[in-house]
Write a protein that binds this DNA or RNA. Structure first.
Lengths: 186, 186
DNA sequence: TATTGTTATACTCTATAACTATA
DNA sequence: TATAGTTATAGAGTATAACAATA
């Protein structure tokens, strides 16, 4: 029942994993009608190649991989770099301030701080003015880590962009991204 | 044992979740020495505000949320849009070609196709020239979905950018991102 | 033996709700 | 009662290895 028009209730797709029992591929004998060979290098992306989101996803993905590969010996993820910079530059800030600054929710901040803590990179002290608050500081080891990251990350954009963009273009790109970031609520 | 210099073996961090038992926050009485109040609006981001990766992460994150909010009734994730566009524009391509085109590995492609299949959006036929291959097509329902997405996505970048960027700047940004994407291996 | 597609598994990331301790 | 931080859990995203069918 329910002809295969767009009748399907939209809320019916509760869980997206699992992707229950795909219907068996048809064993049609009439395959000869289609090109059957599409050169992977000449795939039509249509309007996709005009969309901001498409490039943001692809490029962030590539950037992350590039970063993780180069920072393998430090065992640090990209977003953790941001966290260590912010903590280092703003000693004594609270987890909730970190949460706002990095646009990560409290639970994620706690998990990240626990991980930093277990590695001896940060320290949390209880605030003297509000015992609910914690003040976050880099330990000496955390400062050394931040120094290493500063060096690593210094020429990173340049090496990621390779010869795809000139210095001027890269600067222009970062400027536009910064302007967009600043101009939207995020 | 093992003074807290950088002696810690780097490979020791096998699992990153769990973040085993954080050391209890110190109950120091000398908290009065620090500012203790950092206005969340005046956090120092230092060089972070110069890094490509920082903006790519923040902006892609915002873009994804914006998209999911607006496309809630279609129940589609951003990357699934790309997949449906590519399948629609290249009927009869194989999962491995899709994998190259979208930079997702085979397992992810299969999972996505299973999900599309269970929703009646795509169909997989076995190739007549190589029985290992599958040829992927949009069903009529898949084509209707693609039409809806085309409409939704048409003005999407513009609405995401809001008044943060002019049309010219947005075009310039997409141009630079496309150039960067094309110029690196990704 | 190599390749296509698939399944299984695990780790990371993200989001939500519930709990604690303080206020 | 409200807030800061934490814990627990589950859903998505990503990566890897192993497997079946076919070449």
């Amino acid at each position: 029942m329910a002809a295969r028009t767009s009748q399907r209730p939209v809320a019916a797709r509760s869980t997206r994993t699992g992707a229950s029992r795909p219907s068996k591929p048809r064993l049609t004998a009439r395959d000869a009608e289609q090109p059957d060979t599409i050169d992977a290098s000449q795939i039509d992306f249509g309007p996709l190649s005009q969309y901001l989101g498409y490039y943001l996803r692809r490029l962030y993905d590539g950037y992350r991989k590039h970063f993780v590969a180069q920072a393998a010996d430090l065992d640090v993820q990209p977003r953790e770099v941001g966290a260590l910079f912010v903590i280092g530059l703003n000693p004594g800030l609270t987890p909730s301030q970190l949460s706002v600054a990095l646009a990560l929710d409290g639970a994620q901040i706690t998990a990240m701080l626990n991980m930093f803590d277990s590695r001896g990179l940060v320290e949390r002290r209880v605030s003297s003015v509000d015992a609910r608050s914690r003040l976050v500081y880099l330990t000496p080891a955390g400062k050394r880590m931040l120094d290493k990251l500063r060096k690593l990350v210094g020429g990173f954009d340049r090496s990621f962009a390779g010869d795809a963009l000139t210095d001027a273009e890269l600067g222009q790109l970062i400027g536009l991204l910064a302007k967009l970031h600043a101009g939207i609520g995020d």
